[in-house]
Amino acid sequence: MVEPILSVRDLVTYFRPEEGVVRAVDGASFDLHAGRTLGIVGESGCGKSVTARSILRIVERPGRVEGGEILLRRADGRVVDLAKLDDKSQEMRNIRGGAIGYIFQEPMSSLSAFHTVGNQIIEAIRLHRKLTAKEARERAIELLQLVGIPQPQQRVDSYSFELSGGLRQRVMIALALAAEPGILIADEPTTALDVTTQAQILELIRRLQAERHLAVILITHDMGVIAEMADSVAVMYLGKIVESGPVDAIFHAPRHPYTQALLRSIPSVLAAPRSRLATIAGSIPHPYARPPGCPYYPRCHSFMAGVCDKSTPPVNRIDAAHEVRCFLYGAATETAA
């Protein structure tokens, strides 16, 4: 098998405010391959965004990457553990935006209102590549063209507030690709956008990925977007990856009770009109009131008293690519072990 470009092992990121501990990411592991899209899906508070921020080492205080490995394969073949790097170090800054590009949900707050979009892209280009101002400007116009911005020669001199939400997100993507990274992290890139604009942006990401053989981490709460975009999927719940596997297996043969329930409860345009949805009981616990054992057990229909609420379920392997963190599939591990 091809070596992954990014390999996350037992990532632990905790927030320690005065009130207690929030286990935002609690032992997440996954691999990312060039030219493939990994979808990380989950509801609010599941830790999907913190996972992305941990990889980029931009977790805000009082949060901190407290354990695990984030192994990045650099272009020269070297493997760097990002978890061990100082988040303010020169190398980390080179990786951020250099080896890993990223786009966030709200493009307005990620773009400066005081510089033209062109200047921001030029700055990003020159930060990572030695180009003259003129060359960088040409490159910026090329990038704007690449992300489908009409009249890039004029748009290069406009400010972010002069652009619509969809165009702003395109500029963000141009910015993320300025240093030609091998990895693109997209955190809810279309949540703030309308559905037709979302379709445009998803199409763009897909096209760029094919053209540049990008490895993409797509973070979203929308199962529809995941089904549309991802090659493999990691489902997160309260800081844990409860299930991961190829997109087809996740959608058509889900194993974890949470994945199963989630898939049944999402509204779909394919459903019969006015059909009732299956529901998941209760709501997501407050991060301070995280249940012991399997975090999903209070809402789980397959809850086994004395097992699920006592200890954390291990990762059980269904097949080579499909893993599930649930006691229901324990027998498989025992025979494997």
Binding site: S164, G166, L167, D194, V195, T196, T197, Q198, A199, Q200, L202, E203, D222, M223, G224, V225, I226, A227, E228, A230, V247, D248, F251, H252, L263, I266, S268, V269, L270
Partner: peptide, 25 residues
Amino acid sequence: EALLSAVPVPDPRQRAKRIVLEGEV
């Protein structure tokens, strides 16, 4: 038609060819 086509369907086996609208509202 375009609006319906743009809605992502939660089924990877139904990755249809979307009608992507040009331009802005």
